[in-house]
Write a protein that binds this DNA or RNA. Structure first.
Lengths: 139, 139
DNA sequence: TTCATTATTTAGAATCGTTATAGATTTTGA
DNA sequence: TCAAAATCTATAACGATTCTAAATAATGAA
């Protein structure tokens, strides 16, 4: 059965304020791996009283509790992914665009072997690939 | 045969100023994956006129030319690795310490298969593991 | 419900990492 | 040797993130 957003947050020990629910909802229905600023900008039109500090606090809280994963493709701005099930990311080294890529069994086996060998808590791939848009523009 | 640092830089199209050589030398002889600020702080005692801007400029130039690799373990500060040959990184999710880990053939095969499949420019593992120091302190 | 307590949100200031600017210095090659 | 180009320096500016203190909202006991 599928849990509501509110119940998903409670499950992770997070009190489900409407701001938190809105931010999680945004991440799950817009899988664009946004930055905190993008989340704030895109939500503030429908939530005029939303504060940027709340967005940062919430995303940090989510990251702490494992509700989101973070990545820093450009190294200067943190981006957030609301989908925490196992999948990889293709990152464009030029524009820092992030796309999802599903693992095939081969990948999962390799990751599992490495986790075992290193005694790791988690292992992920980072895949660098110039995205189609940047590839065309650079011609 | 082994190239001097100066020749290594020339090979990548970088003019080998003594600041650039010193920064590359630091990265290669202190494999601590330092931040720009760490590089600046640790070098400025022996190079009193060194400017922080030079460190940032140089590290950015090195990254552009493929002399170093960058990573953002904590997401707020960029770190630099002077060793660009293929190897993985174990990152402590608590203190952001970065350690090297050599790939075994198995890993390399899996990475190569994934690169082929995705048409990627490069693929790396990101291995999360609480380091021994943090593991002990959390007891 | 009412009240006190605690958690959350807000706005703005402060901080920190990084980049931009402009002038000084060094290097290069004619 | 001298002009042109590249590099370095110091500092200002910027952008992302965190901190602070006050306001608001939620909770639970009486």
């Amino acid at each position: 059965m599928k849990l509501s957003l509110s119940e998903q947050l409670k499950d992770k020990g997070i009190r489900p304020s409407w701001q938190r629910i809105a931010i999680l909802d945004f991440l799950l229905s817009n899988r664009i791996h946004p930055s905190a600023d993008q989340v704030y900008t895109m939500l503030s039109s429908s939530m005029p009283t939303l504060s940027k500090a709340t967005v940062y606090n919430t995303l940090n809280l989510f990251a702490d509790k494992g509700v989101v994963k973070t990545m820093s493709p450009s190294g200067v701005e943190r981006h957030y992914d609301g989908v925490v099930s196992r999948h990889g990311h293709i990152i464009c080294p030029i524009c820092s665009r992030i796309d999802d890529v599903d693992y095939i069994q081969d990948d999962i086996d390799a990751l599992d072997r490495m986790m075992e060998r290193i005694d790791a808590d988690s292992v992920d791939f980072v895949i660098n690939r110039i995205c189609d848009k940047c590839r065309h523009e650079s011609i």
